[in-house]
Nucleic acid binder design. Structure first.
Length: 570
RNA sequence: CGGGAUGUAGCGCAGUUGGUAGCGCACGUGCUUUGGGAGCAUGGGGUCGGGGGUUCAAGUCCCUCCAUCCCGACCA
């Protein structure tokens, strides 16, 4: 392709709307433009990159025995109503009506559509197992689209669904997908962690997320360098990390006027936050919950939800009136001793190991010192309800955990019979018995994967594409197009490389060399062939985007050399 | 949905106490130049986000709506 004819309007200045590298570079390098908040259009180079990633995904899905299909983006309401998700999704779903006032939505995900296909077409165990996938546009009306393509309202997703006769079959399908995902992200040149995630109230188990480590990631991950354990912050278990050293002291009420927060207590009493225990009052589905964690810890609401067995929207922090009612004091003095009414007390498992800590007195302006679990109060449940922090012990091997942020590019999990039960997807087994089909689902965000690749592969000049996803492998830059000899050599190399089937660009624009070099760097084409003054000596340069120095090569050797580099780096 | 900010040429921005709307880049033309974002000359391009109001006069002040971005909440 000739750069003079390609639509690549690169930007010289950083667009005001972008803040993170991948967003800035996708706009600067003219891969895409914004159409509306969270809605992007792709220019020729951007489209080629999407295609490259999709192609890798196709090859690996096919290799794993999955079959490609294409569902509809426009989905009739009845299907979502059957599974109950028409209301669950709420405003996040783009809903619309047809001319006859029938309800539709733009598919935010496709479990129901796939399940519907299977319940209609699969009747016997002889037709199973089956893994189907599609690459298709999804629509989610996110409350806050972010960071360009990282969290957008319209995006391309590869979603796969497995259908098996039993759980052992599901395990096999799940493992196939797991391996396929590893191969996909390896081929994309990504460094990633496979992380245990919480499948929450959605049911299912063995939920794993593929996270690309990046400071701009939206999720925190706890991981262990020693044994390889990695989990989503919400999911990561905390081991008890304390040794009892002190003797119990007699408890004692202390006057703490207007001292409510941990920070104020630390200042007032001059004691470190880990000597306090904070009591958080929540309003659950049908009762009030008091959750206790150490003063320097954060409560993990996901863990709390799982213990209570309720859904996210059923739990909220109690308002002042409820707090005052159950504690008999103003907000800021809640404690576990002497709570009024039916209050479920859930205590973090670290607390029974603490000695002589400080809690609220359930009396305005007072706290209690030297409180001890067991002697002074008891809980309904003792469990891990806190967030991990850097340095906590790995639940598997005990080494200190590290915490980083990650971009979720893939998510796989075992659905079981959630959708097959809801929609009645059954098969008949060998014995003639009707049974529900066991399902799994597996997603990859294609655009987000592209953005994640850029986050991990760029420098101050621009993108540095891995060969596998580069929009073109080679860019030929004649330094001066008005120089007859340079032009001729560049065109010759271009013609040969094209004939060899190599994806090659030639920058035939009548621009100064500096502009062309800067554009080539910005676009991130892995191999640059510079055709300059030395053509008269039969020499051109090969420069790799990832390296500083160029290498001089004989014109007669260029093509062979380039072919070898590509082969080596694919 | 709460908090913060922004909206002026394709892009990045300036515009003072209200008084003829500007700069750089980009774009067109001509000449010179040509190994890391050239120089000179010349030309074109604006509902100043929309609507309403105050005023002799509004990019500027007031009201309102919209859009976009950031932080948070939320996110099968």
């Amino acid at each position: 392709m000739r750069l003079s004819q390609l639509l690549v309007p690169t930007l010289r200045e950083i667009p005001a709307e972008a803040e993170i590298p991948s967003h800035i570079l996708m706009l600067k390098a003219a891969l895409m433009r914004k159409l509306a908040s969270g809605v992007y259009i792709y220019l020729p180079l951007g489209q080629r990159i999407l295609r490259k990633v999709e192609q890798i995904v196709r090859e690996e899905m096919d290799r794993a025995g999955s079959q490609e299909v294409l569902m509809a983006a426009l989905i009739p309401a009845e299907l979502l109503k059957e599974s109950g998700r028409w209301d669950v999704f709420g405003p996040e779903m783009f809903k619309l009506k047809d001319r006859n006032e029938r309800d539709f939505c733009l598919g935010p995900t496709h479990e129901e559509v796939f399940t519907d296909l299977i319940r209609n077409e699969v009747k016997s165990y002889r037709q199973l197992p089956l893994i189907l996938y599609q690459i298709q546009t999804k629509f989610r009306d996110e409350r806050r689209p972010r960071f360009g393509v990282m969290r957008s309202r319209e995006f391309i997703m590869k979603d796969a669904y497995s259908f098996d006769v039993d759980w052992e079959g599901l395990d096999k399908s799940f493992n196939k997908m797991y391996e396929a995902y590893c191969r996909i992200f390896d081929r994309c040149g990504l460094k990633y962690l496979v992380v245990e995630a919480d499948s929450g109230a959605m049911g299912g188990k063995d939920s794993k997320e593929f996270m690309v480590i990046s400071s701009i990631g939206e999720a925190a991950i706890a991981y262990c360098d020693n044994c390889g354990y990695a989990a989503n912050e919400e999911k990561a278990e905390c081991l008890i990390n304390q040794e009892i050293v002190e003797e119990m002291l007699p408890k004692e009420k202390v006057y703490t006027p207007n001292v409510r927060t941990i920070e104020e207590l630390v200042n007032f009493l001059g004691i470190t936050p880990n000597k306090f225990v904070k009591t958080l009052i929540y309003k659950g589905k049908d009762n009030v919950v008091a959750a206790l964690v150490r003063g320097d810890r954060d409560l993990n609401e996901t863990k709390l939800l799982n213990i209570l067995g309720i859904r996210e929207e059923e739990l909220e922090l109690a308002d002042a009136s409820i707090v005052e009612k159950v504690t008999g004091a103003k907000v800021g003095f809640a404690g576990p001793i002497g709570l009024k009414g039916e209050v479920i007390i859930i205590v973090d498992n670290e607390i029974p190991e603490m000695r002589n800590f400080i809690v609220g007195a359930n009396e305005t302006d007072y706290h209690i010192k030297n409180v001890n679990y067991g002697r002074d109060f008891k809980a309904d449940v003792v469990a891990d309800i806190k967030n991990v922090i850097e340095g906590d012990k790995c639940p598997r091997c005990g080494s200190p955990l590290k915490i980083d942020r990650g971009i979720e590019v893939g998510h796989i999990f075992k659905l079981g019979t959630k959708y097959s039960d809801a929609l009645g997807a059954k098969y008949v087994d060998e014995g003639g018995n009707e049974k529900p089909i066991i399902m799994g689902c597996y997603g990859i965000g294609i655009n987000r994967t592209v953005a994640a690749i850029i986050e991990q592969h760029h420098d101050e000049k621009g993108i540095i594409w891995p060969m596998s996803v580069a929009p073109y492998h080679v860019i030929i830059v004649p330094v001066n197009v008005s120089n007859e000899a340079q032009n001729r050599v560049a065109e010759d190399i271009y013609a040969v490389l094209q004939k060899e089937g190599i994806e090659v660009l030639i920058d035939d624009r009548d621009l100064r060399a500096g502009v062309k070099f800067n554009d080539a760097d910005l676009l991130g084409i892995p191999i640059r062939i510079t055709v300059g003054k030395k053509v008269d000596d039969g020499i051109v340069e090969i420069k790799l985007r990832e390296k500083e120095e160029a290498e001089e090569v004989k014109i007669s050797d260029v093509v062979e050399k380039v072919k070898n580099i590509i082969k080596e780096k694919m």
